[in-house]
Amino acid sequence: MRRTILYALAALGALWLVRNLYVILLALPDEVAQGAIYRIFFFHLPAWFTCFAAFFAAGVASIFYLVRKSPAYDAFAVAAVEVGVAFTAIGLVTGMVWARIIWGIWWTWDPRLTWAFITLLVYLGYLMLRHAIDEAAERAKNSAVLCIFAFASVVITYKAIDWWRTQHPGAVLSFRTGGGTIDPAMESMIFQNWFALLLVALALVLIRMRQERLERELDALRRRAHAL
């Protein structure tokens, strides 16, 4: 039953992505100033939103872990962080491709770019810490604490777009600018693509959580075998 739900989610996400690709590539016109390359934005921004959502969920799960001490919360946190890191990488790479075309360079030490990079490093540190601790309860506890600290960098990255008005384009979505900066058809497409990516991310998180659960069961069996 859980499997069926999982596959249904993944399939729905994939189908929605294909449909979105059709609209993005064939139905929507080129942007006036940037031409065809602006289409990467339909993945750049949703990828960042997905990674923010994943890191936020991981932070909440970490707090729940510290309160309830249930391994399921820890499994969710690590799954969300791993998926979040993947989407951070997507956000960075799509941004770099765009920058290469529009600015002529792959990277600039703009505060917004720098903070995005810092967030990636912080969460890679989280994953490294997990690898370094062998004992499961200790690993879950310490990484939960780190996950709460790490969320500070996500907040700064999200707000960096307002705090520093530099080379990176400012906010365009109407809930942050008050409207008038983006064509409604394009804006709706950004949200639709975000939801599609969220579905994919959710499916990935559920798969990863299942792996964690199986690993825990394997560990328990191994320990029992050793005891015998």
Partner: peptide, 10 residues
């Protein structure tokens, strides 16, 4: 090895 990796970005 872990401490600098965690501390510097934070």
């Amino acid at each position: 090895l872990m401490l600098p990796v965690l501390v510097y970005p934070m």
